[in-house]
């Protein structure tokens, strides 16, 4: 019996495509963001409020992943920006190849912000790099404030945590300080924003965050 060392990543093929996407995004100075959450945390609502607040001339495109239906794409198409549904065909996550295929006939020259709404799932999407500049995890006040501890990988890999549905705080047992503390235990330094897509509370801070990142992506210092 011989032991042959392999020393390669299990998802090396996905990582290879993701690296291609990432250098393509950098070359076109596109800010790509990957939104991850459990089902119903409000990813689509957050994207709706985001698109709604962007100036008409914004060069933004959205990819939205779902196992079935194009409901989300139809919701998001109402804001006048290009949207494409990726049906994952039963898969519980998007992978880099699905993104590559979805972008194949889009001119990247016409985009400078690409929003990817992953399949609603706090576990599986974490393992698949999509070439994004940042993962954003959305957690809602209708869930448990211990979610960061239960799904550490997602919270560890996300750059930003958006706590949504804060208008529900008076009616639920979710503790905002506990949720933040748990997220910081898993990922010291994770940025945290608190918003309500229903009342609009906190969305200015999110728009500011997005704007800062877009400016940084376009800054000459970031030229590849």
């Amino acid at each position: 019996m011989t032991r042959v060392p392999l020393e390669k990543k299990v998802l090396s093929e996905n990582d290879r495509i993701a690296a291609e996407l990432r250098s393509m995004f950098q070359a076109h100075r596109i800010l790509c963001l990957n939104f991850i959450s459990s089902p119903g945390a409000g990813k689509t609502a957050l994207l709706e409020r985001t698109l709604e607040g962007l100036p008409r001339e914004t060069r933004v495109a959205t990819l939205t992943g779902d196992i079935q239906t194009d409901n989300d794409a139809r919701r998001l198409a109402g804001y006048g920006f290009p949207v494409r549904q990726i049906s994952s065909g039963g898969a519980c996550h998007l992978d880099a190849r699905m993104v590559q295929r979805a972008l194949a006939d889009w001119s990247l020259k016409e985009i400078d912000l690409l929003l990817i709404e992953n399949v609603g799932n706090l576990v599986c999407p974490t393992s698949y790099d999509l070439g994004e500049a940042a993962k954003i995890v959305v957690l809602s006040a209708a869930e448990g404030d211990d979610k960061p501890l239960k799904y550490p990988a997602t919270f560890y890999k996300a750059s930003l945590l958006i706590i949504n549905k804060i208008d529900l705080l008076p009616y639920v047992s979710f503790s905002l300080p506990t949720a933040c503390e748990n997220a910081l235990r898993i990922h010291p330094g994770i940025e945290i924003l608190e918003v309500s897509c229903t009342t609009g509370q906190g969305l200015d801070n999110w728009r500011q965050w997005l704007n800062d990142k877009r400016l940084a992506t376009r800054a000459p210092a970031n030229r590849p």
Binding site: T2, V4, A153, Y156, P188
Partner: peptide, 19 residues
Amino acid sequence: GETQLVSGDELELAYLEVE
């Protein structure tokens, strides 16, 4: 408080045993 992850996020193929 300033510490850095050095391992624990691996998903790697380490080896094969072959005949």
